[in-house]
Design a protein around this nucleic acid. Structure first.
Length: 437
RNA sequence: CGGAGCGUAGCGCAGCCUGGUAGCGCACCAGUCUGGGGGACUGGGGGUCGCCGGUUCGAGUCCGGCCGCUCCGACCA
């Protein structure tokens, strides 16, 4: 993509409405624009990142054996009346009336819809387990949206729902999600810390929140400092095997959110305890038969008896992750994207657009890297070098490739890793292509 | 939902107290010089001062109401 043709409305100054760094950078880097409180439009580069994150999540869900579906954003009120949540959910649920005066709602979550699908289609324990996921928009009419996309009203979310014949099966499904989440967040360049969560209003037995540490996180968290040395990608995972040992291992180290932490009863020594703030990026939940009982989602078990199905639901805040990743990975100049989700891998900077040698070298680099399948943004604008570097730093492209008359005289271009404190490597055009392909 | 603050050009802000033809910086357009970390000069364009009403000869400025946004608290993926 040529920057001269790319819709990337960057800002030099911080918009007054943005208080935290991820929000400021997302606005300044031209990723999003606010449409109303907590409701955002995603511009080309922001949308690219959102889709890249979505794809990582999708791959990990598929790997864990979940199947992708797409449910409606608008749901009939009747399903929620059946489950009993229509009255319980309160004002956070956006309620709508259609032209026939029927009550609808914009889904804040999808337990009712998926349970309805399940009960109409599945009758036998032999069809279990089933695990369905979707990635799309939800709406919760938060009283106070804030922190940009991290606490929006409309948000993009992966949610999935597991159905099992008994509690043992449900725990197996739960464990699969637990491990898939660890892998997923690690692939996004984050260090996820699963924390035992309060099961709250939904009730239930087993629940973990996946927290990413960040100074601007909205909840206080406490954990063993040894968490910083963990890396889930070192795990060799077979989702068909017994995952309990992995889950046990990853729940041994102490980690607790504010409401679960008791300073007087904390097993970690003071100097080994990290106290900080965190962002919740995922939540897994086993809640048993709450919805299946209320909504009559039963299957016939091997003895011929009809039993309510055991369910769990699990969420990842995909749009929130965009903000969370920026919170975890930026410097004073801008965003530093992990390569796994970067909108572009390479930012090509023509330091003297209009100079024949520079143009020719850039054209070659641009064409060859594109041919090699490398996502590249080429700053071909007639701007000063400083403007281009500042812009490239701001949008966070992992590799900056600078081409100028000075270097070309010696047959070299300069390669810099974003976030590496300005260490530039000089290399020939050919080796640059080889390095980045 | 309680408390507070703010709405003036695309962005950041001044002007309001003390009413009298709407300003600054950045961005944008044209041109000249420049050219390796947000460059300089010259000349331009862009505003129903959030909305409605009131006071006044006259309202961005004073008064009332409404809307929107932000912050703190309570609540949440």
């Amino acid at each position: 993509m040529r920057l001269s043709r790319y819709f990337l409305p960057t800002l030099k100054e911080n918009p007054a409405e943005a208080q935290i760094v991820s929000h400021r950078l997302m606005l300044r880097a031209g990723m999003v624009r606010q449409s109303a409180a907590g409701i955002y439009s995603w511009l080309p580069m922001g949308y690219k990142v959102l889709r890249n994150i979505e794809q990582v999540v999708r791959e990990e869900m598929d790997a864990a054996g979940s199947q992708e579906v797409l449910m409606p954003t608008i749901q009939p009120a009747e399903l929620w009346q059946e489950s009993g949540r229509y009255d319980d959910y309160g004002k956070e649920m956006l309620r709508i009336t259609d032209r026939h005066d029927r009550s609808l709602l914009y889904g804040p979550t999808h337990e009712e819809v998926v349970t309805d699908i399940f009960r109409n289609a599945v009758k036998s324990y032999r069809d279990l387990p089933i695990n369905l996921y979707q990635i799309h928009w939800k709406f919760r009419d938060e009283v106070r949206p804030r922190f940009g996309v991290m606490r929006g009203r409309e948000f993009f979310m992966k949610d999935n729902y597991s159905f099992d014949i008994d509690a043992a099966g449900a725990v197996r499904s739960y464990n699969k999600m637990f491990v898939a989440y660890l892998r997923c967040f690690a692939r996004l360049g984050l260090t996820p810390i699963p924390m035992r969560a309060d099961t709250g209003a939904i009730g239930g037995d087993l629940s973990h929140e996946f927290i990413v540490l960040a100074d601007t996180g909205e909840s206080a968290v406490y954990c063993d400092k040894s968490w910083f040395k963990t890396n889930p990608l070192d795990l060799d995972v077979d989702f068909e095997s017994d995952l309990q040992p992995i889950v046990d291992e990853w729940t041994t180290l102490y980690a607790a959110t504010d409401e679960m932490h008791d300073a007087a009863d904390c097993p970690v020594a003071a100097d080994q305890l990290y106290e900080g703030r965190g962002i919740e990026v995922g939540h897994i939940f086993y809640f048993g038969t709450k919805y299946s009982t209320a909504m009559g989602a039963t299957v016939t078990d091997s003895s011929g008896a009809d039993v309510p199905v055991e369910m769990g639901s699990h969420g990842i805040g995909v749009s929130r992750l965009v903000g969370a990743i920026i919170e975890a990975s930026h410097d004073e100049s801008g965003i530093i994207w992990p390569e796994s989700i970067a909108p572009f891998k390479v930012g090509l900077i023509n330091l003297r657009a209009g100079d024949d040698a520079c143009d020719a070298a850039c054209d070659k680099l641009y064409a060859d890297l594109q041919k090699a399948g490398v996502e590249i943004i080429y700053d071909d604008r007639d701007e000063r070098a400083g403007v281009k570097f500042a812009n490239m730093d701001l949008i966070g492209v992992p590799w900056q490739l600078a081409v100028g008359p000075r270097g070309l005289k010696n047959g070299v271009v300069e390669l810099k890793r974003r976030g590496s404190d300005g260490d530039k490597e000089e290399l020939s055009i050919e080796s640059a292509i080889a390095r980045l392909s």
